[in-house]
Computed example of a mutant assay.
Amino acid sequence: MRIAVLETDLFPDKGTLEGALAVLEQAPEAHQLFRHDLRRPKLTEHEWDVVLDAILASDVVVTV
């Protein structure tokens, strides 16, 4: 399963989500995690294109 992880710091329970994602990362043959840091100010247009491509290509999108 392809999983796009969007790092945003929007949720106070980030630790819980990170714990669940760590379990998924232990099975790379079953799950591929692609992390994108959206916390940086002023992402370029190209960086947003990469994020959007990852979202469209993923089976699941998780916002942390």
Rank of each mutant, 00 (worst) to 15 (best):
E47W: 06
P28V: 13
V64H: 02
R40F: 05
D9K: 11
V51Q: 01
E18M: 10
Q26E: 15
L38D: 03
G15Q: 14
Q26G: 13
A30E: 14
D9Y: 10
P28T: 06
E29Y: 09
H36P: 01
E47A: 09
M1W: 13
H46K: 10
Q26N: 15
P41W: 06
A4F: 11
A4S: 15
E29M: 11
R35D: 05
L10P: 06
V23T: 05
E47S: 08
E7R: 12
H46F: 08
L21V: 09
E25F: 08
A4I: 10
V62F: 02
H31W: 12
V23L: 06
H36C: 03
E45L: 12
S58Y: 02
V64T: 02
D37T: 00
A54W: 01
L10Y: 13
S58N: 01
Q26Y: 09
E47F: 05
E18S: 10
L43E: 02
T63Q: 02
R2C: 05
Q32H: 07
V61L: 00
V51H: 01
P12C: 14
G15D: 13
T16D: 12
E7L: 12
A30K: 15
E29S: 12
L21A: 05
L17V: 14
D37E: 07
H46N: 09
D9L: 12
L38M: 11
G19S: 11
D49L: 09
E47R: 05
A22P: 06
A20V: 09
I55P: 01
E45G: 12
G19H: 10
D49W: 06
P28Y: 11
G15T: 15
V62C: 01
D59M: 04
L17K: 06
L33N: 04
Q32C: 03
D53F: 01
V51T: 06
V61P: 01
T44C: 02
W48G: 02
L6K: 02
M1I: 15
L52V: 10
H36K: 08
A57K: 04
Q26V: 09
E25G: 10
L6N: 02
P41C: 04
R39D: 05
D49G: 09
I55W: 00
V62P: 00
G19K: 08
P12V: 14
R2A: 13
L43C: 03
P28E: 14
R40I: 08
